[in-house]
């Protein structure tokens, strides 16, 4: 992998994690309990399962590997690892 490709991955991650961090409350309200796909500060798909998100992206011919997929817990739900 070239340095350029690695930096591009970091750019996608940084944009995505900042978007989640800043908008978490709103994401919980709208998508709590679901998986979401994020690209360029936008939720481009949501579904009940990780696999279903992939199916939606595949159907839209969007590159799954360049998309951030995240589970959003419901409001008030505390997830412990």
């Amino acid at each position: 992998m070239t340095e350029q490709e690695i930096l591009k991955e970091f750019e996608i991650l940084e944009t995505g994690s900042q978007f989640i961090s800043v908008n978490f409350k709103g994401l919980q309200k709208e998508f709590g309990g679901r998986f979401i796909a994020i690209r360029d500060k936008e939720v481009i798909a949501d579904a009940d399962t990780f696999n279903d998100v992939k199916k939606i992206l595949d159907a839209q011919k969007l590159n799954f590997s360049k998309t951030i997929v995240q589970f959003i817990p419901r409001e008030g739900e505390i997830i412990l690892y």
Binding site: M1, E9, F10, L13, E14, G16, S17, S21, Q70, I78
Partner: peptide, 28 residues
């Protein structure tokens, strides 16, 4: 590290890029 400060959902998010053979890509 990015912070999620929402009460009850506090998290520390850290970005890594996998360089594992045939498995290149970003992970939050």
């Amino acid at each position: 590290i990015n912070l999620i400060k929402e009460v009850g959902a506090e998290r520390l998010l850290f970005n890594i890029v996998s360089m594992y053979p045939h498995s290149f890509g970003g992970i939050i």
